[in-house]
Design a protein around this nucleic acid. Structure first.
Length: 489
RNA sequence: GCCCCCGUCGUCUAGAGGCCCAGGACGCCACCCUUUCAAGGUGGAGACCGCGGGUUCGAAUCCCGCCGGGGGCACCA
């Protein structure tokens, strides 16, 4: 039997890391098994649909390289890819209505005319009496006279599933083993709403069957709903798929990921300067591991080794610090030209159009110093700055020259003299001219270099001095040294 | 209230009865390298394996109870 899995988000907003981890595991399993990865949009609650959410979902998946084999065509919402479509549930209403009708005719479902007010009252009363809130089955065996009366009043009924009153419903979860539920803890849930839309349970069961889904990987918040789904498969005489309920991803405080946790949307992480390969790797390791030591894993290795057996049961807290470390790892692994191109948009937004050659000389200097793309701006800004640098005398003078402006000025003077007319203007020549000066003037190299560093970059922490001066160019370097000298007068 | 799931360093995890007085990674702290910052290297602190009982010659690993955390119980998904 061929492996067919689906990722089926609701278009209610951006995908957060939990959703995406679910998508990733589905995708990995499909690729590992040579199966099919399907994207399905579950928009049966029209009131919650957010415009643009579908586009955002597609963008997130594409950014991470989780391409789907069947699903909506991102280029044209009216079309779709695959033979089991459409893949947007609101385009499949007739299918669900037919299915609901089928259950009704078979006596597996019934019409319910109860108003939402009555339902609310029943629920409130049950809660007040510390009873589990459950539909009281008022319409389960409604005499046909009553039904005719309700219909005459023009009440649109909902379809409810006729849940067995006794017995057990069980299923085997690949990750958690056998799960057993008493049917009397379940109630007669709605399958078709009065607006003609199905409820999740019906829609997903019908679609998973029609789309020949073999494995359902989804968040573990669905564990308690699964018996309902099993009951539905039974009612239709369909073979249920294999279920695997993935552990939750929690926020730093151990609570469910939500608005209070800073960035949780994957697109936000992208905008903060994380690379897609970082998110892919990191999310792939939340609830799954390759072995006892490997942390950095490329996508081919993930695909090759992904296995159900190594999926964890326990929830994981999303640790941004480790994510940031990992981004540094991926950044450092990037070839210079590629990093330059990824950095270009970020830098150009800050300093304007960039010369390719200049950029590619700067990138190696900040390469192993950035963990996030936008950090490049702060780290390399002085390379692009025109005119005077902004720094304090205190920073420039450091401990050694703190009370001795005149000595600092003399030192700078000596440096200027040393590099005057230097040819070629490159690392080795600069070092050859400046390093001996420290000893001649009686300073430690670090003391002299520190002075120059701030004069030239405006910062106490910067890339290696001579490389920096070489890339910065003779004219700018000399200008800045002179400017620093002037400030000391 | 009822039902279900989960429980190894702060965090991500390895561990499927003896290899574990528990290994790796992030973070943290030292030291080394070094012109600063990074990167890299070495070392360290950090987990009485949620707690209490069993079973066993032997348990993080098996069983029971408890506690803690999370989820579900909608004409939401």
């Amino acid at each position: 039997m061929s492996v067919r899995v689906r990722f089926s988000p609701s278009p209610t907003g951006d995908l957060h890391v939990g959703n995406v981890r679910t998508a990733l595991f589905n995708w990995l399993f499909a690729r590992h098994e040579g199966g099919t990865f399907i994207l399905r949009i579950e928009d049966t609650d029209q009131s919650r649909v957010v415009p643009g959410a579908l586009e955002s979902i597609a963008e997130t998946l594409r950014w991470l390289g989780l391409e789907w084999d069947e699903g909506p065509d991102p280029k044209d919402p009216a079309r779709y890819i695959g033979e089991h479509g459409p893949y947007v549930q609101s385009h499949r209403l007739d299918i669900y209505q037919k299915a609901a009708r089928q259950l009704l005719d078979a006596g597996q479902a019934y019409l319910c005319f109860c108003s939402s007010q009555r339902l609310d009252e029943v629920r409130k009363d049950q809660q007040r009496r510390k009873l589990p809130p459950k539909y009281d089955r008022r319409c389960r065996d409604l005499p046909s006279d009553d039904r005719a009366q309700f219909e005459a009043q023009g009440i649109t009924p909902v379809f409810r599933f006729r849940t067995p009153l006794a017995g057990q419903t069980t299923y085997r979860d690949v990750i958690r083993g056998d799960l057993i539920f008493e049917n009397d803890t379940l109630d007669d849930f709605v399958i078709l709403k009065s607006d003609g839309f199905p409820v999740y349970h019906l829609a997903s069961v019908v679609d998973d069957h029609l789309m020949a889904i073999s494995h359902v990987f989804r968040g573990d918040e669905w564990i308690s709903s699964t018996p309902r789904h099993i009951l539905l498969y039974d009612a239709f005489s369909w073979e249920p798929p294999t279920f695997a309920h993935l552990p939750t991803i929690l926020g730093t405080d151990g609570a469910r990921l939500g608005k209070r946790h800073g960035a949780t949307s994957v697109l936000q992480f992208r905008d903060q300067g994380f690379l897609p390969e970082t998110l892919f790797n990191f999310l792939g390791l939340l609830g799954w591991s390759l072995d006892d030591r490997t942390e950095v894993i490329d996508r081919d290795t993930f695909v090759r080794h992904f296995s159900l057996e190594r999926i964890l049961k326990s929830p994981a807290i999303f640790n941004v610090e480790k994510l940031t470390w990992m981004n540094g790892v991926y950044l450092r692994a990037l070839p210079v030209e590629e990093l330059a191109e990824r950095l270009r948009p970020v830098l150009e937004a800050a300093v304007g159009p960039l010369d390719r050659e200049y950029l590619e000389r700067i990138v190696p200097l900040i390469h192993e110093r950035i963990k996030l793309l936008p950090e490049a701006v702060a780290l390399s800004g002085f390379f692009f700055q025109e005119g005077e640098l902004d720094y304090t005398l205190e920073d420039m003078l450091g401990k050694r020259f703190a009370d001795d402006d005149a000595q600092a000025a003399d030192a700078l003077e000596a440096v200027l003299a040393g590099i005057d007319g230097l040819e070629p203007w490159a690392h080795d020549g600069l070092e050859g001219a400046i390093r001996p000066l420290a000893q001649e003037l009686g300073y430690k190299t670090g003391e002299l270099f520190g002075l120059i560093r701030v004069a030239v970059t405006g910062k106490t922490a910067a890339p290696p001095l001579f490389e920096t001066m070489a890339v910065l160019g003779q004219q700018r370097t000399v200008e800045r040294l002179k400017s620093a000298r002037r400030r000391l007068r």
